[in-house]
Protein backbone atom coordinates (compact mmCIF):
# COMPACT_ATOMS: atom_id res chain seq x y z
CA UNK A 1 0.00 0.00 0.00
CA UNK A 2 2.04 2.97 -1.19
CA UNK A 3 -0.65 5.59 -0.82
CA UNK A 4 -3.31 4.95 1.80
CA UNK A 5 -5.52 7.66 0.41
CA UNK A 6 -5.59 5.87 -2.89
CA UNK A 7 -6.39 2.61 -1.12
CA UNK A 8 -9.90 3.74 -0.35
CA UNK A 9 -10.22 5.62 -3.58
CA UNK A 10 -8.82 2.99 -5.87
CA UNK A 11 -10.05 3.74 -9.33
CA UNK A 12 -12.35 6.40 -7.95
CA UNK A 13 -14.50 7.25 -10.92
CA UNK A 14 -15.94 10.47 -9.60
CA UNK A 15 -19.09 8.56 -8.86
CA UNK A 16 -20.01 8.03 -12.50
CA UNK A 17 -19.27 4.30 -12.55
CA UNK A 18 -22.25 2.02 -12.77
CA UNK A 19 -22.44 -0.97 -10.47
CA UNK A 20 -21.54 -3.52 -13.13
CA UNK A 21 -18.38 -1.55 -13.93
CA UNK A 22 -17.52 -1.53 -10.23
CA UNK A 23 -17.95 -5.31 -10.06
CA UNK A 24 -15.79 -5.74 -13.14
CA UNK A 25 -13.09 -3.55 -11.63
CA UNK A 26 -13.12 -5.71 -8.53
CA UNK A 27 -13.17 -8.91 -10.57
CA UNK A 28 -16.56 -9.98 -9.25
CA UNK A 29 -18.31 -10.53 -12.58
CA UNK A 30 -17.95 -13.83 -14.43
CA UNK A 31 -15.58 -13.53 -17.36
CA UNK A 32 -16.29 -15.23 -20.67
CA UNK A 33 -13.76 -18.08 -20.90
CA UNK A 34 -11.36 -17.85 -23.83
CA UNK A 35 -11.24 -21.59 -24.44
CA UNK A 36 -14.30 -23.78 -24.35
CA UNK A 37 -16.85 -25.17 -26.73
CA UNK A 38 -16.39 -23.84 -30.22
CA UNK A 39 -18.28 -20.71 -31.04
CA UNK A 40 -21.73 -21.39 -32.39
CA UNK A 41 -21.89 -24.95 -31.16
CA UNK A 42 -24.20 -25.89 -28.33
CA UNK A 43 -22.46 -26.86 -25.12
CA UNK A 44 -22.21 -30.56 -24.36
CA UNK A 45 -23.14 -29.94 -20.71
CA UNK A 46 -26.90 -30.14 -20.19
CA UNK A 47 -27.97 -26.80 -18.74
CA UNK A 48 -30.73 -26.10 -16.32
CA UNK A 49 -33.44 -24.10 -18.07
CA UNK A 50 -36.40 -22.17 -16.81
CA UNK A 51 -39.53 -21.51 -18.85
CA UNK A 52 -42.33 -20.07 -19.37
CA UNK A 53 -43.06 -16.47 -18.44
CA UNK A 54 -45.71 -13.98 -19.46
CA UNK A 55 -46.76 -10.46 -18.64
CA UNK A 56 -49.59 -8.19 -19.69
CA UNK A 57 -51.06 -4.86 -18.77
CA UNK A 58 -54.49 -4.79 -17.17
CA UNK A 59 -56.62 -2.28 -15.28
CA UNK A 60 -54.54 -2.48 -12.10
CA UNK A 61 -51.05 -2.26 -13.62
CA UNK A 62 -48.90 -5.04 -15.05
CA UNK A 63 -49.34 -8.69 -14.19
CA UNK A 64 -46.24 -10.87 -14.46
CA UNK A 65 -46.51 -14.65 -14.14
CA UNK A 66 -44.25 -17.64 -14.48
CA UNK A 67 -44.59 -21.39 -14.14
CA UNK A 68 -42.41 -23.14 -11.57
CA UNK A 69 -40.51 -25.72 -13.60
CA UNK A 70 -36.78 -25.85 -14.23
CA UNK A 71 -35.51 -28.52 -16.61
CA UNK A 72 -32.23 -29.88 -17.85
CA UNK A 73 -32.64 -31.72 -21.12
CA UNK A 74 -35.46 -34.18 -20.52
CA UNK A 75 -35.15 -34.04 -16.76
CA UNK A 76 -37.28 -31.95 -14.46
CA UNK A 77 -34.73 -30.42 -12.09
CA UNK A 78 -36.99 -28.42 -9.89
CA UNK A 79 -40.71 -27.76 -9.63
CA UNK A 80 -40.67 -24.76 -7.31
CA UNK A 81 -38.47 -22.34 -9.25
CA UNK A 82 -39.19 -18.65 -8.90
CA UNK A 83 -38.79 -16.92 -12.25
CA UNK A 84 -40.54 -13.68 -11.35
CA UNK A 85 -38.08 -11.52 -9.45
CA UNK A 86 -38.53 -8.19 -7.75
CA UNK A 87 -35.79 -5.75 -8.69
CA UNK A 88 -36.95 -2.66 -6.85
CA UNK A 89 -40.13 -1.24 -5.41
CA UNK A 90 -41.69 -0.80 -8.86
CA UNK A 91 -39.78 -3.15 -11.16
CA UNK A 92 -40.12 -6.84 -11.91
CA UNK A 93 -37.85 -8.99 -14.03
CA UNK A 94 -39.13 -12.35 -15.19
CA UNK A 95 -36.75 -14.87 -16.67
CA UNK A 96 -36.79 -17.65 -19.21
CA UNK A 97 -33.50 -19.38 -19.80
CA UNK A 98 -30.62 -20.40 -17.60
CA UNK A 99 -31.38 -19.54 -13.98
CA UNK A 100 -27.71 -19.43 -12.95
CA UNK A 101 -27.16 -16.49 -15.28
CA UNK A 102 -30.59 -14.96 -14.81
CA UNK A 103 -30.55 -14.84 -11.03
CA UNK A 104 -27.08 -13.32 -11.12
CA UNK A 105 -28.34 -10.73 -13.62
CA UNK A 106 -31.26 -9.94 -11.34
CA UNK A 107 -28.88 -9.44 -8.43
CA UNK A 108 -26.63 -7.17 -10.45
CA UNK A 109 -29.64 -5.23 -11.69
CA UNK A 110 -31.15 -4.85 -8.23
CA UNK A 111 -27.86 -3.59 -6.83
CA UNK A 112 -27.30 -1.33 -9.85
CA UNK A 113 -30.54 0.55 -9.30
CA UNK A 114 -29.87 0.98 -5.59
CA UNK A 115 -26.24 1.87 -6.15
CA UNK A 116 -27.28 4.52 -8.63
CA UNK A 117 -29.83 6.02 -6.26
CA UNK A 118 -27.41 6.03 -3.34
CA UNK A 119 -24.43 7.48 -5.16
CA UNK A 120 -26.22 9.87 -7.53
CA UNK A 121 -28.94 10.90 -5.05
CA UNK A 122 -31.74 10.41 -7.58
CA UNK A 123 -33.72 7.47 -8.91
CA UNK A 124 -32.70 5.91 -12.19
CA UNK A 125 -35.12 6.73 -15.00
CA UNK A 126 -37.23 3.97 -16.56
CA UNK A 127 -35.21 4.27 -19.76
CA UNK A 128 -32.02 3.95 -17.75
CA UNK A 129 -33.30 0.81 -16.05
CA UNK A 130 -34.41 -0.75 -19.34
CA UNK A 131 -31.02 0.03 -20.83
CA UNK A 132 -29.18 -1.41 -17.81
CA UNK A 133 -30.76 -4.82 -18.41
CA UNK A 134 -29.96 -4.54 -22.12
CA UNK A 135 -26.34 -3.97 -21.27
CA UNK A 136 -26.18 -6.98 -18.93
CA UNK A 137 -27.59 -9.17 -21.72
CA UNK A 138 -25.13 -7.71 -24.20
CA UNK A 139 -22.26 -8.40 -21.79
CA UNK A 140 -23.49 -11.98 -21.42
CA UNK A 141 -23.52 -12.54 -25.16
CA UNK A 142 -20.01 -14.00 -25.09
CA UNK A 143 -21.38 -16.84 -22.98
CA UNK A 144 -24.37 -17.24 -25.27
CA UNK A 145 -22.03 -17.61 -28.25
CA UNK A 146 -20.26 -20.40 -26.37
CA UNK A 147 -23.59 -22.10 -25.95
CA UNK A 148 -24.18 -21.43 -22.27
CA UNK A 149 -26.28 -19.06 -20.23
CA UNK A 150 -28.98 -17.87 -22.63
CA UNK A 151 -31.47 -15.62 -20.86
CA UNK A 152 -34.56 -14.03 -22.39
CA UNK A 153 -36.18 -11.78 -19.82
CA UNK A 154 -39.29 -9.66 -19.50
CA UNK A 155 -39.09 -6.39 -17.62
CA UNK A 156 -42.15 -4.66 -16.15
CA UNK A 157 -42.16 -1.40 -14.28
CA UNK A 158 -44.55 1.28 -13.13
CA UNK A 159 -43.63 4.96 -13.30
CA UNK A 160 -46.43 7.07 -11.86
CA UNK A 161 -44.99 10.19 -13.51
CA UNK A 162 -45.02 8.81 -17.05
CA UNK A 163 -47.76 8.22 -19.59
CA UNK A 164 -48.50 5.34 -19.83
CA UNK A 165 -47.49 4.65 -16.24
CA UNK A 166 -47.29 0.87 -16.73
CA UNK A 167 -44.36 -0.13 -18.92
CA UNK A 168 -43.60 -3.57 -20.29
CA UNK A 169 -40.56 -4.79 -22.26
CA UNK A 170 -39.23 -8.05 -23.54
CA UNK A 171 -35.67 -8.72 -24.63
CA UNK A 172 -33.81 -11.01 -26.95
CA UNK A 173 -30.64 -12.86 -25.94
CA UNK A 174 -28.44 -10.16 -27.50
CA UNK A 175 -29.97 -7.41 -25.42
CA UNK A 176 -32.39 -5.70 -27.80
CA UNK A 177 -35.36 -4.38 -25.84
CA UNK A 178 -38.85 -4.24 -27.27
CA UNK A 179 -41.54 -2.23 -25.57
CA UNK A 180 -44.99 -3.75 -25.91
CA UNK A 181 -48.39 -2.15 -25.54
CA UNK A 182 -50.36 -5.19 -24.38
CA UNK A 183 -48.55 -8.42 -23.57
CA UNK A 184 -45.29 -10.32 -23.77
CA UNK A 185 -44.27 -13.96 -23.32
CA UNK A 186 -40.95 -15.76 -23.61
CA UNK A 187 -39.66 -19.27 -22.99
CA UNK A 188 -40.46 -22.61 -24.61
CA UNK A 189 -44.16 -22.41 -23.78
CA UNK A 190 -44.49 -18.91 -25.18
CA UNK A 191 -46.07 -19.76 -28.57
CA UNK A 192 -49.10 -21.24 -26.80
CA UNK A 193 -49.21 -18.37 -24.31
CA UNK A 194 -49.05 -15.78 -27.08
CA UNK A 195 -51.91 -17.56 -28.83
CA UNK A 196 -54.07 -17.42 -25.72
CA UNK A 197 -53.22 -13.78 -24.96
CA UNK A 198 -53.78 -12.71 -28.57
CA UNK A 199 -57.15 -14.45 -28.58
CA UNK A 200 -58.20 -12.95 -25.25
CA UNK A 201 -57.06 -9.49 -26.24
CA UNK A 202 -58.98 -9.47 -29.51
CA UNK A 203 -61.99 -11.72 -29.05
CA UNK A 204 -62.18 -12.30 -25.31
CA UNK A 205 -64.79 -10.90 -22.96
CA UNK A 206 -62.76 -7.70 -22.70
CA UNK A 207 -59.37 -6.54 -24.02
CA UNK A 208 -56.55 -7.37 -21.55
CA UNK A 209 -56.15 -3.69 -20.61
CA UNK A 210 -59.74 -3.58 -19.34
CA UNK A 211 -59.60 -6.72 -17.18
CA UNK A 212 -59.91 -6.48 -13.40
CA UNK A 213 -57.48 -8.35 -11.18
CA UNK A 214 -59.43 -11.61 -10.82
CA UNK A 215 -60.07 -11.87 -14.55
CA UNK A 216 -56.44 -11.02 -15.31
CA UNK A 217 -55.19 -13.76 -13.00
CA UNK A 218 -57.61 -16.23 -14.56
CA UNK A 219 -56.33 -15.40 -18.06
CA UNK A 220 -52.73 -15.82 -16.88
CA UNK A 221 -53.53 -19.20 -15.31
CA UNK A 222 -55.33 -20.37 -18.46
CA UNK A 223 -52.42 -19.27 -20.65
CA UNK A 224 -49.87 -21.13 -18.51
CA UNK A 225 -52.11 -24.19 -18.38
CA UNK A 226 -52.36 -24.16 -22.17
CA UNK A 227 -48.56 -23.96 -22.43
CA UNK A 228 -48.09 -26.83 -19.96
CA UNK A 229 -50.53 -28.98 -21.92
CA UNK A 230 -48.11 -29.37 -24.84
CA UNK A 231 -44.73 -28.14 -23.60
CA UNK A 232 -42.93 -30.55 -21.27
CA UNK A 233 -40.66 -27.79 -20.00
CA UNK A 234 -43.59 -25.83 -18.61
CA UNK A 235 -44.85 -27.00 -15.24
CA UNK A 236 -48.61 -27.30 -14.73
CA UNK A 237 -50.43 -26.46 -11.52
CA UNK A 238 -49.97 -29.26 -9.01
CA UNK A 239 -52.90 -28.99 -6.65
CA UNK A 240 -51.88 -31.90 -4.45
CA UNK A 241 -48.43 -30.51 -3.80
CA UNK A 242 -49.87 -26.98 -3.78
CA UNK A 243 -47.55 -25.76 -6.50
CA UNK A 244 -49.00 -22.72 -8.22
CA UNK A 245 -47.45 -20.25 -10.65
CA UNK A 246 -45.79 -17.16 -9.21
CA UNK A 247 -47.91 -14.15 -10.03
CA UNK A 248 -46.88 -10.60 -9.17
CA UNK A 249 -48.63 -7.35 -9.93
CA UNK A 250 -46.82 -4.04 -10.19
CA UNK A 251 -48.92 -0.93 -9.75
CA UNK A 252 -48.76 2.57 -8.32
CA UNK A 253 -48.56 1.09 -4.80
CA UNK A 254 -45.58 -1.09 -5.62
CA UNK A 255 -45.38 -4.83 -6.10
CA UNK A 256 -47.93 -7.28 -4.76
CA UNK A 257 -47.29 -11.03 -4.76
CA UNK A 258 -50.44 -13.10 -5.00
CA UNK A 259 -50.90 -15.65 -2.27
CA UNK A 260 -51.21 -19.32 -3.22
CA UNK A 261 -54.63 -19.32 -1.57
CA UNK A 262 -55.92 -16.59 -3.91
CA UNK A 263 -54.46 -18.33 -6.95
CA UNK A 264 -55.90 -21.69 -5.86
CA UNK A 265 -59.38 -20.21 -5.55
CA UNK A 266 -59.23 -18.54 -8.97
CA UNK A 267 -57.75 -21.67 -10.52
CA UNK A 268 -60.60 -23.76 -9.18
CA UNK A 269 -63.19 -21.27 -10.39
CA UNK A 270 -61.78 -20.39 -13.80
CA UNK A 271 -59.47 -23.13 -15.00
CA UNK A 272 -60.24 -26.55 -13.65
Amino acid sequence: MDSPRAALDQGFGGGVDDFAALLRRKGLLAQVPQSGPAVGRTSAIPQTQATTILAFKFQGGVLVAGDRRATSGNTVVYDRADKVLEIDRHSIMAIAGVPATAWEMARVLEHSFQFFRRTQLQDMSVDGKVRALSKLLRDNFGFVMQGVGVVVPIFATYDAGADPAARLYFYDAMGANFEVTDYAATGSGSPAVRGVLYYENNWGKKPLLKLDEDDAVTVALRALDTAAESDTATGAVDRNAKIFPIIKIVSRDGIATLLDKQIAALFKKGVA
Binding site: L22, L23, L28, V108, H111, F115, R118
Partner: peptide, 9 residues
Protein backbone atom coordinates in the same frame (compact mmCIF):
# COMPACT_ATOMS: atom_id res chain seq x y z
CA UNK B 1 -21.18 3.01 -0.60
CA UNK B 2 -18.93 1.00 -2.93
CA UNK B 3 -17.67 -1.09 -0.02
CA UNK B 4 -21.15 -1.70 1.36
CA UNK B 5 -22.64 -2.47 -2.06
CA UNK B 6 -19.97 -4.97 -3.06
CA UNK B 7 -20.25 -6.69 0.31
CA UNK B 8 -24.05 -6.77 0.01
CA UNK B 9 -23.75 -8.15 -3.51
Amino acid sequence: IELASTEGF
